[in-house]
Computed example of a mutant assay.
Amino acid sequence: MAASRARHVVVSTCFVAAVLGAGVAAWSVVTPADSAPASARQTPAPATTTITKGDLTDTKVFSGSLGFDRPVPLPGSATGTVTWLPEPGKVIARDQPLYAVDEHPVRAMYGSVPLWRDLTRGAEGADVHQLNENLAALGYGVSVDDVFGPRTERAVRQWQEHHGLTVDGSLGADDIAFVPGEVRVASRTAQLGAPVNGDVLQLTGTTPVALVTVQPADEQRLAVGTTVSMRIGGVGDPVEGAVVDTRQDEDQGDGTVEVTIAFDPGDRDVPQGGSVQVTASGQSAHDVLSVPVAALVAGDGKAFALDVVRSSGATERVPVTVSFVAEGRAAIDGAVRQGDRVVMPS
């Protein structure tokens, strides 16, 4: 029995990476020191484990940080001199000022279509529909349609009067700008006292996201739409997230990929810049027999084997093939069955 145990191999942690990457494992046989006389030695019963049947999934953990999605620019379309800009980190909601030109606030309205013209009575289109949606959300009586009719003009006049503006019933780039929703100021691009020229602000959404940088080989594991498990700060119960964006990390210039993961923080405190551990699944093997990797011993050539404990207590070395390694276990094929006991190295 001692000789049988001596032939067990200790599988180094590099085995898992080798099987997953190149399919070649590095093995070494470790022979325990045994200098005491045979009469003075006692042979303890070997440790064993059981062959189980089930699913194995290759998972990988990535470290990242908490922040906000990639900033997008807000073009300055008003005409004049920049006289006010919000501080970075400020959250701007509907009808609140985004910036000011000649001391005239340009206010946020929600919509995906940029304001590309003055909106006045008789205009029709998606931008008019957005305006009507915003006026309705602010409590003005309008029809939410694509037409700038009498009701829209009346609502615009009421809006202008409420903000102390010239009441003329039309709106332009000096008055409003469409943004996707409630936004957060990431940085200020324009300069106070300078003419409006190009982008004014860099904006993000207000919901925290996880940001992870990965090597190109792991990009598919974190493809857009992939569901992942996350631990905020590495503690507490995991939360579910979904990959919403991947792109080349241009700042690094080494081919790495920047991954953005959206999640619902619930009532958790999510500090910007805090750490996050993201667990992503890869390949899976279903309904397979498996043993701990450490139970494998060297067989003939590059083959593997298991020392199976028979009902008599004797062990039999049984050749097996390894088809998949994940979760510290090896999926095996051979003349073995679910429930068989196999020897673990001491």
Rank of each mutant, 00 (worst) to 15 (best):
T246S: 11
P319W: 00
R70F: 14
V270S: 08
P44Y: 10
T315V: 10
V320L: 00
Q158G: 08
V142S: 06
R247G: 10
N132K: 14
G205Y: 00
V297F: 07
G299T: 02
V16W: 14
G111L: 03
L85D: 00
V209H: 02
E87T: 09
H104P: 12
Q42D: 09
S275M: 04
G172P: 02
G282T: 00
L135P: 06
T79H: 07
S312K: 07
E240F: 10
R121H: 07
F324W: 08
Q220A: 15
V9P: 08
V235H: 15
L66I: 04
A17K: 13
A326K: 04
P292D: 09
G282A: 02
T49C: 11
F304Y: 06
D58E: 13
V309P: 04
A186D: 11
H104M: 02
G80W: 10
D218M: 11
A3F: 13
V179S: 01
G225N: 14
G164Q: 08
A285T: 05
M109R: 05
S281G: 15
A126N: 09
I92W: 06
P114W: 06
S170P: 15
T204E: 07
G164C: 08
P105N: 04
E258D: 14
F15E: 04
D307Q: 09
R341G: 03
T31I: 12
G67F: 04
E153Y: 05
G76Q: 03
R337I: 04
L211C: 00
T48E: 04
V147K: 01
G241N: 02
S346H: 12
A242K: 15
A26L: 09
A326V: 06
P105H: 01
D269L: 13
R184F: 09
S346Y: 08
A223S: 10
V297T: 08
Q42C: 14
T13P: 12
V30C: 09
V72D: 14
E182S: 15
S284G: 02
D237W: 06
E87I: 12
L56F: 01
L131Y: 06
V278T: 10
A38S: 12
